[in-house]
């Protein structure tokens, strides 16, 4: 294996860590029936290895677009996006695919497991595109399934597993390539609260153990509150970032009452969640988040009613 996997120890050892993903003034405009739609308008952020970030915002806020960009599934129409040290705009589609394979792990709301395919084969899928021999693929996939607590269900098919188990398989698939960033798009959205909490804990545990950056897209405030760092989006811009890498002043006035209360457990969790590789920045950011958030406006009306529906 080459590339980012080789880069990572180096990144951890240097004082100024190499960002896993860096977006500088990134915009994304779609053409829909001849009309330009600006999904993202100048987003800048840095995700470091080991970060635990929640990306929140109402639907249409651009958080999915941002997640697709961070995952290398899409390219910005403006600005600079660097994933694993490589400028996305300089890469061809096959190079983008290789970049995704080597640096990104995806977890989707709808699991996106291949039907009629066993858990171990689903997990091994990314290794197929890396050219890993079949025997090794199976060994690594089985080991990964063991880590997510499904060592006993290797040959079960998705339709023989519960939703929580399917999402664990998806998490194993995302991590089997040892990526630097794990992008989870509403990973608990299709699960009941108990199962969802367990899946979330698993993600947090893996984030803490392996140093993979965890980016969680969610509208669930309780879920978002567990993250060390929280990025709120609205109308294609980042409204708040509890760990703004550019330290730019937040452009939002404090004239609206805060309707969202961050989870009380946010601070201690975020400290442990950011892991040993993130000692000062993580805790500082988390502290900043709890200090600042109450004064910030609600990201949108859609979210106001949401916390009640989550528990």
């Amino acid at each position: 294996m080459t590339g980012p996997v080789g880069d990572r120890p180096e990144a951890g050892s240097t004082a100024e860590r190499v960002p896993a993903v860096e977006a500088v003034d990134v915009s994304r405009t779609y053409q829909l029936d001849g009309v330009s739609v600006e999904a993202l308008r100048g987003v800048s952020l840095i995700v470091h290895p080991g970060d635990y970030v929640a990306l929140v915002g109402p639907s249409g806020s651009g958080k999915s677009t941002l997640m697709h960009l961070l995952g290398g599934l899409d390219r910005p129409t403006g600005g600079r996006l660097v994933i694993g040290g490589r400028d996305v705009n300089a890469l061809s589609p096959p190079e983008m695919a290789t970049l995704r394979n080597e640096t990104i792990g995806f977890v989707f709301q709808a699991f996106h497991l291949l039907p009629r395919t066993s858990a171990v084969e689903n997990v091994a899928l990314p290794l197929v595109y890396r050219g890993v021999p079949a025997r090794q693929r199976r060994e690594r996939a089985a080991a990964m399934l063991g880590r997510v607590g499904l060592g006993h269900r290797l040959d079960h098919r998705p339709n023989q597993m519960s939703g929580g188990e399917q999402q664990r398989v998806a998490i194993a698939r995302a991590l089997v390539t040892e990526p630097t960033v794990l992008l989870a798009d509403e990973p608990t959205g299709n699960l009941d609260s108990v199962t969802g909490a367990a899946v979330l804990e698993l993600l947090e545990q893996l984030n803490a153990e392996s140093g993979v950056a965890l980016v969680l897209v969610t509208h669930d405030q309780e879920v978002a509150g567990r993250a060390a760092r929280r990025i709120t989006m609205r109308d294609g811009v980042v409204v708040t970032d509890s760990d703004d890498p550019h330290d730019r002043p937040l452009s939002v006035d404090h004239d609206r009452p805060e309707t969202l209360v961050p989870a009380p457990s946010a601070e201690p969790r975020s400290v442990s969640g950011s892991g040993p590789g993130h000692p000062s920045g993580g805790s500082g950011g988390a502290a900043g988040a709890t200090g600042r958030l109450p004064q910030e406006p609600a990201p949108g009306g859609a979210e106001v009613g949401r916390p009640g529906g989550v528990a």
Partner: peptide, 16 residues
């Protein structure tokens, strides 16, 4: 289509 999208997300190149 979804399967194709997933395969691409985990690193399948257009040629694959």
């Amino acid at each position: 289509t979804r399967e194709i999208g997933l395969r691409k997300a985990v690193g399948a190149r257009p040629r694959d």
